[in-house]
Design a protein around this nucleic acid. Structure first.
Lengths: 205, 205
DNA sequence: GACAACGTAAACCAATCGGTTCAGTTTCGG
DNA sequence: CCGAAACTGAACCGATTGGTTTACGTTGTC
């Protein structure tokens, strides 16, 4: 995403991004009208179009901003005081909670929907979302503390398997509206089962 | 989905469904224009509107038809001549191949995109897609042949975990355009690793 | 071969879309 | 407190949308 050239200026830039983010997440790219975005952002359409050449670039700017923000959210993995099993469980709970959050769901939805129309968006989202998490987990799996308890050959694949196990049952149910707001106990259960399966495979014998 | 009331008639019904399916999968709901659908189906717009009251109902009809068709695709699980491990591997390969297929991807994309605007669509897709597969796998896990080799308490969750393991690495990469057409060897590898992790957890001790 | 039912093509409609223009107001640094 | 830059609001544009209508072919059937 090499944008940013000649794109931004003005003092209401953040307002525009915020409004656009809200509307895009709510309505999707095609569903969001520029007038609605301007209204929601408390800004005139002329101002909006003085920042961005068109709707697509605005959309990409929102996604970039959001992904950059997400990238800064560091996972607290220096959990040297926790056992490996508890650390994994914590990772899973964090992951699941994010998957099921309003923001996580909306973001996933709109990115899935538009990924083929905006190839660069697909890559940006993947890199700063799923990929980033997998790398983070893999990094932990490769740490001395974890290696003492686990035997992992392909740490990136193992990390991805763990992340996928976290999506069991609940993720798709929420995504397709079968369940609205899973109880904490359900989340704990899925996290628990994910860790159990993961450890069964990768715990050092 | 209680439609079908006063909805269908006429001899070109199938043409319309086929054309609509192609365009909707290609462009998404908002992106697909009715004129384009009519053109693609080789049918006049008037005919189209004599079958369906509006675009939404046409969309739902396409989804229903497609889901019903998918529901008839029986997984060949009477693999009494295969070991449990080989059966699981076969299931995984089938699943992964479907996840990565053009149709599977497009279908997933458009359903994710529109699930919140069409709640009934979300449920229909979930039931005849992910849910159906999980039930099918769970059913196998509960069969005597499988129970002899496996120790599964919650067969539905276990099935879902297996399905999720099949999505490791490749699914999101293809969905977001990072990879176009994964080589067969990669698919085999993911299937293999999924089965390994699954068996590590659920193989009878 | 006539009579319905079905299908067509194209014009047509109101609404909405992304995007532009412009005359006028607000903001704010020097 | 002035002047330039930023912002506004609303009118406006051409294109496209979902959907309707009309006047005319096609099909098939008893």
């Amino acid at each position: 995403m090499n944008a940013e050239a000649q794109i931004k200026k003005g003092r209401k830039y953040d307002q525009v991004i915020d409004g656009a983010k809200a509307v895009f997440l709510r309505e999707g790219f095609e569903g969001a009208s520029v007038d609605e975005i301007a209204r929601d952002a408390g800004v005139s359409k002329a101002t909006l179009y003085s920042y961005f050449p068109d709707k697509q670039h605005l959309f990409l700017a929102v996604l970039e901003t959001e992904c950059a923000q997400q990238a800064e959210v560091e996972i607290l993995l220096d959990a040297t005081h926790l056992s490996v099993e508890d650390t994994l469980r914590m990772i899973c709970k964090t992951l699941i909670t994010f998957f099921l959050s309003r923001f996580g769901q909306d973001m996933f939805r709109v990115c899935v929907a538009e990924a083929q129309r905006f190839p660069e968006l697909g890559r940006t989202f993947y890199d700063s979302g799923p990929k980033k998490w997998s790398r983070k987990i893999a990094q932990y799996l490769d740490s001395p503390r974890a290696r003492a308890a686990l035997e992992v050959e392909d740490s990136l694949l193992a990390a991805d398997q763990l992340a996928q196990l976290c999506r069991a049952d609940l993720m798709l149910k929420v995504l397709f509206g079968i369940e609205k707001d899973p109880p904490e106990a359900e989340i704990d259960r899925i996290a628990d089962e994910a860790v159990k399966t993961f450890l069964a495979r990768y715990r050092r014998a």
